[in-house]
Each structure stands twice: as structure tokens, then as C-alpha cells.
Simulated scan of single mutants.
Amino acid sequence: MAKQGGANGEHVVTMREVAKAAGVSIKTVSNVVNDYEFVSQTTREKVHKAIDELGYTVNVSARNLRTGQTGIIGLAIPDLQMPYFAQLSSLVIEEAKKLGLRVIVEPTLYSREGEIDALHGSQQAMIDGLIYSPLELGQDDVDQLKVDYPLVLIGERIFTDTVDHIATENVEGAKRATSYLLQTGCKNVAVVGVHPGEKVGSAALRYQGYREALEEAGVEFDERLVVEARMWHRSDGVKAMNSLLDSGVVPDGVVALNDMLASGVMHSIQMHDYRIPDDISVIGFDNSDDSQYLSPALTSIAPGLEAVARLAVKLLKDRIDGRIPSKDLRPDEKVFRKVASSLVVRQSTRVPEIPAAI
């Protein structure tokens, strides 16, 4: 139900009114609200349109008593201030709304304790399932993922066949970015944002893609062009690029392992009176909303966040409702999907000297 009108004249929108507006039965509206899969897409769209126009919302308390579900899912991410995670959160909320779900977003603030609490804390009583993106937990922490509620893992910190997992093309994306710079004529491509000693995670996988692209192109690896950055904020990109340029090493291309780093890298390059892309080309990773508004606009790898959000929410909803997500899966088998990435070319890179396979 939903209330419309002023505080003293509120009108409760009923399921009957939604059914009338959509031209369907009350039972059909109920089926759509509860996401029963046998409702046609056309009917589902008509009902959702009526729901939006009338301002109808589900009576959560009544549904809880009937189904034992809250209609709420959790999203645990490291930081809402990072564009990647802010965009991911927005997309998850949008996808969840389509399925009649609400989302509680819990920033874990780059804390191991926060990531563990997101899995095992008391707040789990409020949600039906969790989409989980860890940064501090690693491969040795697989046992932490043993929970008694539906869980979908995203990101590349932990790989296990015991949990549903939606991943992105980190190796392939960074390889594509590095190869593109080489195709534009770059001879000395630096990589910024490497985490020393990391074996599993976005930094390690993207660095692997960088190395593979050099090897396949027959370009000699130069460790002087590998620049570390523990965190991936703009200030870290500035510091990392300053250290490289101040050392006397001047690359003609840079693969920054995320767009925030790339933004800082570009600032440093310009402060050192080099031109982008004439002197140094720059590619980022994540294709964040801000990347197109940098000067020059940033070429970046788009990791397919829309697909990540859509697949993660749909998968979690299937698990909550007790459905097997695919007819090809065994009842006890978990889903692993890797979402395709793509290169979005803008003005921070030169035109390829040879046709680019992107």
C-alpha cells in the first residue's frame, strides 16, 4: 500500500486500484509484486507503470508475515566516495527496484573488521541476501563466506566455487588498454597503481594484463615503468606520476589502474608541462562518469557495471526465492559469470598507427 495526499487527507493506494489502472486482475498484480516468473514481460511492464503512476508500495510488514522475507537486500562496498562504487551502488539500487526490492548500502571503509561485520553482524536479520564486494579479505578468508543466507560475491579478491560470483575482465581489460597504447605508437608504457606482492585482486590482475600485452607485442619489460600506489585516489595518482617523472623516466603512455589514478596522473603530467596525448597518452580503467569531463576527456576501460549490477541482483533474487538461476546448473552448483569489458576511446590517447582490435 501507499499513501497519497496531505498529512490530514492521506489516501491509501490499494492493489485493486493498481489492477484497475493496469487492466489486469488483482492476482496478476500480486504475482508481479512478488516477482513470480510466469508473468509475461508485457503484463509486468503495464503493472510496474501503474505502480509508478499511482505511487503504490508493498506493505512490507504484511509480506514479511506471509513470506518470511523483508524485501530488503544488502550491498557491502568499500567506499561510497569512490566513483566506481558510487556508480555500482546506484545501478544495484535501480535494478533492485525493478524487482520490488530495497537496498541497504553498507560502506566497509577499507576495513577487514568492517568486511567481516558486513557478513556476520546483527544487521543480517534485516536483509534477505547480500551483494558483497570485499577489498581487505583475501583468498585465505574463503571460510568467512560461509553464511546462512543468499550471498553474491562481486570483485576479484576471492575466488571460490562455494559462492555465486559475478566478476569483471580485469586481465583482459588492462591487456586491451596496453595493447591500444602500443597500437598508437607508444614505445614506453608505464603502469600506475600496482600493489606490491598482491597475487589476487584487481591490481594484480590488471598488472598481469599489462605484462601480457607487452609480451605479446614483443616489447621489453622495464621495471622502471611500474609505479606502485597502495590506494587509488586522485592524490595517489599525482604522487605516483610525480615520482616517475621526477626520477627522469618519461613514458609516452600510461595505463592507470583506475580512473581516479588516471585523473591524478593527468594532473601531474600537465604540471610538468607535458601535453596529453601529444607527449604522453593516458588510459584509465572503470569508465567512471567523470572521465568524459576531464581535459582532455579520458580514454578508459568500461568494465560493464550495468551488467554486473543486473546479474548480481537477479541472481540474488533467484536465490532468495529458492529458484535455480539456470537450467544448466545442478541444485548445489554456484554461478560464476565474467562480464565483458570494452575500450571507450576519447581524447587522452592518440590515433592508432595500425587498426585497433578493441
Rank of each mutant, 00 (worst) to 15 (best):
P83E: 08
L99H: 09
T184N: 05
E333S: 09
A213T: 09
K146I: 11
K46E: 10
E37M: 03
V313L: 07
V58S: 14
L75F: 01
S90Q: 10
L182M: 06
A177C: 03
M126G: 06
D164V: 08
D246V: 06
V250C: 13
V345R: 11
K314V: 01
G114A: 06
Y110P: 00
S25L: 13
A96L: 09
V351G: 12
A309C: 03
A177T: 11
I324A: 08
D140L: 13
G284T: 08
V265L: 03
Y56H: 05
D289F: 05
Q124I: 15
R323N: 07
G121I: 02
A312I: 04
H267Q: 13
R350Y: 08
E17Q: 07
V191R: 00
I104G: 10
L151R: 14
L151T: 00
G201F: 04
D332T: 12
A86L: 11
L305D: 08
V142Y: 11
K98W: 03
M1S: 13
A340C: 07
H267E: 14
V194F: 01
A86H: 13
I127Q: 00
G237Y: 09
D143H: 08
Y207A: 03
V24Y: 00
G23N: 07
A302N: 15
F85S: 05
M266G: 09
S111E: 09
G5T: 06
I104D: 08
R310T: 05
P83R: 10
M241N: 06
Q183F: 06
I158K: 02
L205Y: 11
N34K: 01
L343H: 07
Q270N: 10
Q144A: 06
N59P: 09
A76W: 02
V39R: 00
L65K: 11
A203Y: 08
T349C: 15
V308Q: 05
S281P: 05
G253Q: 10
M231D: 15
A229K: 09
C186V: 00
Q123C: 05
R330Y: 09
T70W: 10
I116Y: 04
G74I: 02
G264W: 12
L137N: 00
T349L: 11
A190K: 01
I320V: 12
Y274Q: 00
S179I: 07
K314S: 10
V12H: 01
L182V: 04
S247N: 15
P352D: 08
L101E: 06
E169C: 14
I158A: 02
H233E: 15
G218M: 10
V12A: 11
I301T: 07
V254K: 14
Y84I: 09
Q347C: 14
V227E: 13
S179E: 12
E156S: 13
L99A: 12
I166H: 02
K334P: 08
A297S: 15
I358N: 14
R112F: 05
V189N: 08
K199H: 03
Q124A: 14
E353A: 13
I320M: 10
K20H: 03
T43S: 05
A203I: 00
P134H: 00
P277G: 08
V171T: 14
V219R: 12
V200I: 06
V29M: 02
V351R: 13
K97G: 13
D117F: 07
M231I: 15
L329I: 01
T42L: 01
G284I: 07
S111Q: 03
V191W: 01
H165R: 03
L91E: 09
V92W: 01
S291G: 07
R157D: 00
E45F: 04
